[in-house]
């Protein structure tokens, strides 16, 4: 067979190089697959997690904040604040989040909604000044 013929003609160094290249390719695959598999929604109030659930499970959540009740909706792999008790409703204006690391911050109501897990999109900066 052709493969046997190739193997017979390979030196020990050739085989070592092939092994190293194979390990490198395998490590890349392992690296990609070892990212956090979960894609969860987390809600924090006063630094404590008060709610967490898989993002793929669609639901409507009523959250008690400092100023009153807010409503978060989880659907189609994303989350969005649809009701807020504060007058300016900035958190509703933040729209939908669906990527790892994205947040909805309701400052007056003391609620922080964030997404964890999955593959974070590559950013060109470490921190944003605004």
């Amino acid at each position: 067979m052709a493969l046997k013929s190739v193997l017979r003609r390979m030196t020990l160094l050739d085989r070592a190089i092939v092994m190293v290249l194979g390990m490198f390719a395998g490590s890349l695959l392992l690296g990609i697959n070892s990212r956090a598999p979960g894609e969860n929604i987390l809600v924090e109030r006063e630094g404590k997690i008060i709610f967490t659930a898989p993002l793929k499970e669609e639901r409507e959540i009523r959250l008690k904040g400092i100023r009153g009740e807010a409503v978060l909706i989880v659907r189609e792999g994303g989350a969005e604040m649809i009701e807020a008790p504060c007058p300016r409703k900035v958190c509703m204006g933040m729209g939908r989040i669906d990527q790892d690391g994205e947040i909805i911050a309701c400052v007056p109501n003391g609620l922080l909604v964030r997404i964890e897990g999955g593959n974070e999109p590559e950013k060109t900066y470490d921190v944003l000044s605004r």
Binding site: K123, T124, Y125, D126, V127, L128, S129, R130
Partner: peptide, 23 residues
């Protein structure tokens, strides 16, 4: 330390400076 976009960076990011995006 990032307070709503007003921030202080301590040291560097390791092998490079901090990259600070300006909105």
């Amino acid at each position: 330390v990032n307070a709503g976009g007003d921030l202080c960076v301590i040291g560097d990011r390791g092998d490079r400076p901090w990259r600070i995006g300006i909105q």
